[in-house]
Amino acid sequence: MTQQDFATRQTPATTEKRPGKALNIVLWVLQIGLLAEFALAGIAKVTANPQMVDMFAEIGAGQWFRVLTGVLELAGAIGLAIPALCGLAGLGLAALSVGATITNIFVLHTNPTITIVLFVVAAVVAWGRRGRTAELVNRFRR
């Protein structure tokens, strides 16, 4: 086997399609933006920011739900910074954003634009990093 044959040979773990360089840069920019947004929101929730305490009191699910939501947001933010987890983190944050959008519309009766934008960005990250998510799933199937 020549060096070129070895370099072009793909193993099952590397056959997942990786984004091109430009898309990879765009995805990292989106991930950093999401990381900042969800880290700040998560910190506000777990540190009992008065606005968050009042908002979750209005939601009526209890303050335990505020803490849980904050922990999930922080976990997602951390996951966005870890290459092997960033696709899964994007998927989880997209799901959180769906819940936040539904809550904004039907419970709080507020404008859901921010949560919709966060959903779209998180979904783009999850889609763009789907190869990494597939690799992660395949590691656990073995």
Score class of each variant (00 low, 15 high):
residue 39 A to E: 04
residue 63 Q to N: 15
residue 102 I to C: 05
residue 95 A to N: 02
residue 96 L to K: 00
residue 85 L to E: 00
residue 56 F to G: 01
residue 63 Q to M: 14
residue 103 T to S: 09
residue 51 Q to K: 09
residue 65 F to G: 04
residue 63 Q to H: 15
residue 104 N to V: 00
residue 113 T to Q: 02
residue 96 L to D: 05
residue 122 A to Y: 03
residue 24 N to R: 10
residue 58 E to P: 00
residue 61 A to N: 09
residue 95 A to L: 08
residue 120 V to W: 05
residue 74 L to H: 07
residue 61 A to W: 14
residue 28 W to I: 13
residue 108 L to E: 07
residue 53 V to F: 01
residue 108 L to P: 02
residue 125 V to I: 13
residue 67 V to N: 03
residue 104 N to L: 11
residue 31 Q to E: 14
residue 69 T to S: 15
residue 33 G to L: 06
residue 46 V to Q: 02
residue 80 L to N: 05
residue 65 F to R: 06
residue 112 P to V: 00
residue 114 I to A: 10
residue 48 A to Y: 11
residue 80 L to C: 08
residue 35 L to A: 12
residue 57 A to C: 00
residue 58 E to C: 00
residue 83 P to D: 11
residue 55 M to H: 03
residue 31 Q to T: 08
residue 57 A to K: 15
residue 107 V to C: 03
residue 125 V to M: 04
residue 29 V to A: 14
residue 59 I to V: 15
residue 78 I to C: 01
residue 98 V to C: 10
residue 101 T to P: 05
residue 100 A to Y: 11
residue 82 I to K: 02
residue 29 V to G: 05
residue 41 A to F: 01
residue 61 A to I: 05
residue 66 R to E: 13
residue 103 T to I: 09
residue 77 A to C: 12
residue 119 F to G: 08
residue 46 V to W: 01
residue 85 L to I: 00
residue 49 N to Y: 04
residue 92 G to C: 01
residue 91 L to F: 11
residue 67 V to H: 02
residue 104 N to S: 12
residue 38 F to G: 05
residue 107 V to I: 15
residue 38 F to S: 06
residue 44 A to C: 08
residue 58 E to I: 00
residue 50 P to N: 07
residue 80 L to M: 14
residue 28 W to K: 03
residue 64 W to G: 12
residue 111 N to G: 07
residue 60 G to V: 13
residue 88 L to D: 03
residue 100 A to I: 10
residue 120 V to C: 10
residue 120 V to Q: 10
residue 32 I to S: 15
residue 36 A to R: 04
residue 76 G to M: 06
residue 27 L to A: 04
residue 25 I to V: 14
residue 110 T to W: 11
residue 118 L to A: 15
residue 123 A to G: 14
residue 117 V to T: 12
residue 42 G to R: 03
residue 100 A to T: 09
residue 95 A to M: 12
residue 53 V to A: 04
residue 80 L to V: 13
residue 27 L to N: 02
residue 85 L to W: 14
residue 106 F to H: 08
residue 88 L to P: 01
residue 48 A to D: 05
residue 30 L to I: 13
residue 50 P to W: 03
residue 41 A to K: 01
residue 91 L to Q: 03
residue 58 E to M: 13
residue 108 L to N: 08
residue 104 N to M: 15
residue 60 G to N: 10
residue 38 F to V: 02
residue 25 I to L: 13
residue 50 P to C: 01
residue 76 G to V: 05
residue 21 K to M: 08
residue 62 G to N: 10
residue 23 L to R: 10
residue 83 P to G: 06
residue 115 T to M: 11
residue 96 L to E: 09
residue 97 S to I: 03
residue 101 T to E: 03
residue 33 G to H: 07
residue 23 L to N: 10
residue 125 V to G: 06
residue 37 E to T: 12
residue 55 M to C: 00
residue 65 F to H: 12
residue 58 E to V: 06
residue 81 A to G: 12
residue 124 V to L: 14
residue 120 V to H: 02
residue 66 R to W: 07
residue 100 A to M: 10
residue 59 I to P: 01
residue 101 T to D: 06
residue 47 T to S: 04
residue 122 A to I: 04
residue 118 L to C: 10
residue 82 I to R: 07
